[in-house]
Nucleic acid binder design. Structure first.
Lengths: 258, 258
DNA sequence: CTCTACTGTGTACAGCGTACTGCTCGAGTC
DNA sequence: GACTCGAGCAGTACGCTGTACACAGTAGAG
């Protein structure tokens, strides 16, 4: 991707426009020439399947084209480049849960909690989502709808627009942040072929001296209590803490403003 | 990196051992042969500087070697591979704030808040930290010390070991998650050469119809209130909400156990 | 001195994204 | 029906990547 950056810097937003056009479906379809054998949707689907199955590192234009039985360059008839394709993949993935999210019921906490859980499940289904260095927040229809639904959950309970947005941001930041480390830890075993037991054994070989020297008192204490290997669910714990934190604000607002 | 995955899968943890050895300083220094002109620390420093200045995409072994005035392959005399070098970079970065973190004073909330702020500043200083797909949680001395300090902030206030770990995890997950999107948004303007105003103008060109159709009621409402362009600090807001959430738990524990 | 462990480098390979070129197909126009 | 020309598709090539491998030069150990 040598020319990627310079190209992007000089094209004055043309690539951005093309991306948005593809996501929002504003592309005029041609009348002349042979019928296209592929479609943007087919390519995006194949790319998602490949990324799900083999990870982001395996996602190359040649591999995608191979899975579709065409040459690598054929993809460029449908998509401007790989980075735009990734934008499309991301927005497509967000569409998966929209129906469920729309159907959520209950109070603000219950509905926001459902949003958090859905986002969490989404990341577990598509781990590559967290590895992509998006570089820019390309807002497609599905990701925007998803955000809209989350905002709807906490509308009308006394929060300002800024606070509502902040609430959604803090929740999804937590979910994304935890998902990233969790998924990386899960994938570690597969990639290295080292089990968790072997892993900690090797680690302790080197960490040991520092522990003995008393330089890591809390990690030692927490480790000896078995907190690293327990079934404690960090997602559930954190989710409730974040919601508790929002509840404090909401309860504080209610009597004065709402 | 064609052989990266397979190599990792077959070496049975040798690469992991080498990484740990480098981080924890357990490598025996050789006596024979010419004195090494470089050192691991020099290489790591150069790599961090390069990544800070030009981003992760520019971080190639050839570029690092060039900055040090040596051939690309010379680096492999000090470091097993690029991924191990990145591990070292990460741990080195964690060392920057340890002195300050050790010095923090006050109650649990004040000290934990300081940890969150430091991590936030760290990500802003080294944006590439969030783009690396670590693949496995390589625990170096500095990252472990950093975690230890954070745990110390909430020790002895009635939380179980698991809850203490959970508290640190939820805070740093939030910080990392928000930092990732924030940094990406900041870098977007540089990379694309499109200002925020132009950006929203282009976006609204396509999003507009959906807004008019009433499909995004909340985003419309929030946008019209100016919440997207305001000076509202999502980090400060979220930080307080997370700490509030933890406080709820701690206050609830105190009378019964602490 | 020789031996040998060690540093540093050049070359080579497989793979990447994609610019460019050319071939072939087929609907629109006459 | 013939011609035109936009459009789909593929091949080649370029510059980039990480790094395996072979080899040259150096300096402490014996």
């Amino acid at each position: 991707m040598p020319r990627d950056e310079t190209a992007r810097r000089t094209d004055g937003g043309a690539a951005v426009r093309r991306s948005l056009q593809l996501m929002w479906g504003g592309a005029p379809e041609p009348t002349r020439g042979p019928k296209p054998g592929l479609s943007v949707a087919t390519i995006v689907r194949a790319a998602i399947d490949l990324a799900d199955a083999e990870g982001l590192v395996a996602l190359s234009m040649r591999r995608i084209a191979g899975a579709l039985g065409v040459g690598a360059m054929s993809l460029y008839r449908y998509v401007p480049g790989k980075s735009e394709l990734v934008d499309l993949m991301v927005d497509e993935v967000y569409s998966e849960d929209i129906a469920d999210a729309e159907a959520a019921e209950g109070g603000w906490r219950q509905r926001l909690e459902a949003c958090g859980r859905q986002e969490w499940a989404l990341y577990l289904r598509h781990p590559w989502m967290l590895q992509i260095a998006q570089g820019r927040p390309m807002l497609g229809p599905n990701s925007m709808r998803s955000t809209d639904i989350a905002l709807r959950a906490i509308d009308g309970i006394g929060l300002s627009e800024e606070e509502m947005l902040g609430a959604v941001v803090v929740l999804s930041s937590f979910v994304a942040g935890l998902a990233k480390t969790t998924i990386e830890a899960m994938q570690a075993a597969d990639r290295t072929g080292i089990s968790d037991e072997e892993w900690w054994e090797i680690q302790s070989e080197y960490v040991g001296p520092a522990v003995v020297a008393g330089e890591l008192p809390m990690l030692t204490k927490v480790g000896e209590a078995g907190a690293f290997n327990s079934m404690f669910d960090h997602f559930e714990f954190g989710l409730q803490r974040v919601l508790d934190g929002l509840e404090v604000l909401i309860e504080h607002r209610r009597p004065t403003e709402g």
